[in-house]
Amino acid sequence: MRIFIKACVAALLLGVTVTACDSYNDNETPGKFVEADKQLDGVWQLSTVKRNGVDITSTMDFSKFRLHLNADGSYKLENRLPLPVKYDGVWSVDDPTHPFVLSFTENNALGAVEVGIQYPIFDGQRRLSITHSPGCGTNSYEYNFVKVNR
């Protein structure tokens, strides 16, 4: 019984100690947070490729592929790889500040092809991530791009 009481006291003391620490101090002023730049135009190079959840980046040379998302709204595929589109055309996003869908319309094509995108910041760099199934619908590929100068 004595041990039990001691344990209770110890637990209480521990609780007091923990809650006494004022480690969280909110000095940020609301509204100060600014949405980071999510501009997608630029030249994108593949950094990692996953097939059905498994990283296959090192198994093939993915380094030469470039996705040019030009500021004028056109796009160009350089050293093409499997993608939902084959030919150059125009691109757009569903929402300029919070884009979740990237649309490609091939030149002379009637309809657009849409892919879901994510744009996390990793190592201080904006990434562009698209998940798509250019071959069989049962296979999914995650392409992660980094912006490069050319």
Binding site: R51, I56, M60, G135, C136, N139
Partner: peptide, 13 residues
């Protein structure tokens, strides 16, 4: 071969 099912626009190992 991986994946078990694929066509020409897949990436096959």
């Amino acid at each position: 071969v991986e994946p078990a099912r694929a066509i020409q626009d897949d990436i096959i190992t």
